[in-house]
């Protein structure tokens, strides 16, 4: 089991104030914090100083392996597995295989996008200390929250609490695991 982790959360009024809070958190040098909102907020990645998601590489890799795998399968089955001459065409008449190769490329990319996204987000994770908070559930309705996890290098309960209030956070709460 992972070691116990406390989280401090503070509520903000709107997407705009959350964006400002994120900029200040980033400037202050916090790392393990997050900004929770009911929908993705435009410009939040820059405000939090986040790098681009590496998901594209995962999808590209999965799509390419699907394509190559399917080319290999059609090649193997038509040359060695079950060679069959149709209307005097070459055994590996690849034009006719394009639809299936295309379909599997798409399918594997979709798996890459879905499972890659879950893996990068460390989901499914049915339990998280944040769920202990009574107030936090509002994030999926119309609430905006900043959360700071206790494994942040700058974590100090009192300091974080006062900093969150100073940047406009309301209902500051320490959620204990």
């Amino acid at each position: 089991m992972a070691k116990k982790m406390n989280v401090i959360i503070a509520e903000f009024e709107s997407s705009g104030s959350l964006l400002h809070a994120a900029e200040k958190m980033n400037a202050e040098g916090y790392k393990n914090y997050d900004c929770h909102s009911p929908f993705p907020i435009h410009g939040m990645d820059q405000a939090m100083g986040l790098k681009r998601s590496p998901l594209g590489y995962i999808i590209g890799f999965m799509g390419a392996s699907g394509m190559l795998g399917m080319i290999a399968l059609t090649y193997y089955t038509n040359i060695y597995g079950y060679p069959m001459v149709v209307s005097g065409k070459p055994l590996f008449s690849w034009q006719a295989f394009v639809p299936v190769i295309f379909a599997i490329t798409i399918l594997m990319s979709a798996f890459g996008a879905f499972f890659g996204m879950l893996a990068l987000n460390k989901l499914p994770r049915l339990f998280h200390p944040l769920f202990f908070s009574q107030n936090f559930g509002k994030f999926s309705d119309g609430g905006f929250f900043v959360s700071v996890e206790s494994d942040d290098p700058k974590y100090d309960e009192e300091k974080v609490k006062s900093f969150l209030s100073s940047i406009g956070g309301k209902n500051v709460e320490v959620v204990k695991d």
Binding site: D34, C35, S37, S53, L123, R125
Partner: peptide
Amino acid sequence: LGWRGGNKQWKH
């Protein structure tokens, strides 16, 4: 799946 709506999740 334990969705928490954090921007680090929204990004991906």
